[in-house]
Design a protein around this nucleic acid. Structure first.
Lengths: 218, 218
DNA sequence: ACCTGAACACCGTTCAAGT
DNA sequence: ACCTGAACACCGTTCAAGT
C-alpha cells in the first residue's frame, strides 16, 4: 500500500496544486498550462492521473468539503451542532469561493453525501419525524449550498481588497435607495440594511428560521 | 420611441436568439460563432449591441426572470402568493436550466431586485416584524436560488430523455443503499426516498418549512 | 451608424515519441 | 508505467476595412 511520493506525480499532488492555484487566482487562473508550469511537467502527465478539468475541479472540491465535515466538532446538542456544521461550511466556502461555484454546479458528489449524512442524522437526533426528515434535510442542504453559491459569486465580484466591499455595497444600496418607494417599497427600505448587513449573521439567521420551522413539525 | 425592427439588429433580437440557443443546446452551445450563424451576421455586429458574453447571458437571464415575476398572479392571500411566486421561479428555471446557473453566478442583477421586492413585500404583508424582515427575505431568496442552481445542475446532468432520470436516480439510490448503515445511517435510509422523490414537491416542502419558521417570529 | 470577417491570443485535450 | 510537448480544434474578442 506504500505510495511513491518523493518524486513522481499522484492525483493527490495534482489536486493540491490545483486548489492552491484556485485559491490564489480564482477559477480563471486554473488552466492546464498553469498547472504544468507549477508542477514542472507536461500535459500528458496530468491527464494520466486525472480524467479532465471537470474531474480535477470535482476532486479539489471533495477534498475541501471532506476536511470541513470531518473537522467540525461533534457538539452534544444537535441544534447547536447543526449551526456549527452550517457555519463551518459557510466559512470554508467563503475562504475558497471556487468550492461554492463547483457545488452549485455538480451535486451528487461524494462530498455532498457526507454533508447530507451529517445534517440528516443531526435532524434525526433533533426529533424530526421520519415522514418529514428527508424534505427537511434536502431543504437545509439546499439553503446552505444556495448561500454558498451566492457568496462565491460575491467573492468573485470583489476580488480586490476589503475597502471595495463596502464601496460596492454602498453603491448597490444607493441604487436601491434611489428607486421609487411606491413601486419598490421593500427594496427601498432594505437599502439601509444592505449597507451594514453581515453576510455571516444573515446566513445564521436563515438557518435559525429553518430550525424554527422544523421545530413546528414535532 | 419607434424602434426599427424589420431589418437590422437590436439587443433584444440578439438576447432572444441567445436564449433560444441556450434552451436548445445548453450553455456549451452558446458561442459567438453559433450566434453569428443564427443571425447571419458578423461578430462586430453583435459586439456593437452587447458588451461581451457575460453581458449577453445576464441580459437573457434578466429577461426570463422579469417575465416570471411580472407574470405571477397577485394572489390575495400573501402565504399562498409566496408559494405561487416560488413555484413559478422553480418552474421557469426547470425549463431554462441556464437561468439557474447564471443566477447562482451573478447576483445583484436587476432581475433579482424584482424577486427581492416581490418576496420581501409579501413577507411584509404576512406580518413579519421589520427587525426580521430582511433576514427572512434574504434566506427565502437564497433558498429559492439554491434549489434553482441544484436543479439546473441536475438538468445539465440529464440532458437526455425522461427514462434517464429514473435510471440515474436508481443508480444513485443503489449506491447510497450499499453504504454501511452504521457509518451512514441517514443516507442509507434516504436511499429509498430518493428513488421516488419529486423535486417540485420537495422544493415546496422547503418553502413551507421556511414559512413555518417565519410564522414563529410574529 | 452599423456591419463584415480575417486575425489574435488564448483554451482543453490528444497522441506520437521518448525514458 | 510514466512522462514530454508539439499539434489540433476549438474559444472570446478585436479591429481595419467596408457600406
Amino acid at each position: 500500500m506504500a505510495k511513491r511520493r518523493a518524486d513522481g506525480l499522484s492525483k493527490e499532488v495534482i489536486v493540491r496544486a490545483a486548489a492552491a492555484i484556485l485559491d490564489d487566482g480564482g477559477e480563471a487562473a486554473l488552466t492546464f498550462r498553469a498547472l504544468t508550469a507549477r508542477l514542472s511537467t507536461g500535459y500528458g502527465a496530468i491527464y494520466h492521473h486525472v480524467a479532465n478539468k471537470s474531474d480535477l475541479l470535482a476532486a479539489a472540491t471533495d477534498d475541501v468539503i471532506a476536511r470541513v465535515v470531518r473537522g467540525a466538532v461533534a457538539d452534544a446538542e444537535p441544534r447547536e451542532a447543526l449551526r456549527t456544521v452550517a457555519l463551518a461550511l459557510f466559512d470554508a466556502i467563503d475562504e475558497h469561493p471556487w468550492v461554492g461555484a463547483q457545488l452549485s454546479r455538480e451535486p451528487w458528489r461524494p462530498a455532498l453525501l457526507e454533508v447530507y449524512e451529517r445534517i440528516g442524522s443531526l435532524l434525526d437526533a433533533l426529533g424530526v419525524p421520519e415522514r418529514a426528515l428527508f424534505d427537511a434535510a434536502g431543504a437545509l442542504v439546499n439553503y446552505v449550498l444556495g448561500v454558498a453559491g451566492q457568496n462565491a459569486a460575491n467573492a468573485r465580484l470583489l476580488t480586490a481588497e476589503e475597502a471595495d466591499r463596502s464601496a460596492f455595497l454602498a453603491s448597490v444600496s444607493a441604487r436601491w435607495e434611489a428607486l421609487d418607494p411606491d413601486e419598490y417599497p421593500f427594496v427601498h427600505k432594505a437599502a439601509a440594511h444592505l449597507r451594514e448587513h453581515d453576510d455571516r449573521a444573515q446566513f445564521l439567521a436563515g438557518v435559525d428560521l429553518f430550525l424554527a420551522g422544523i421545530a413546528t413539525l414535532r
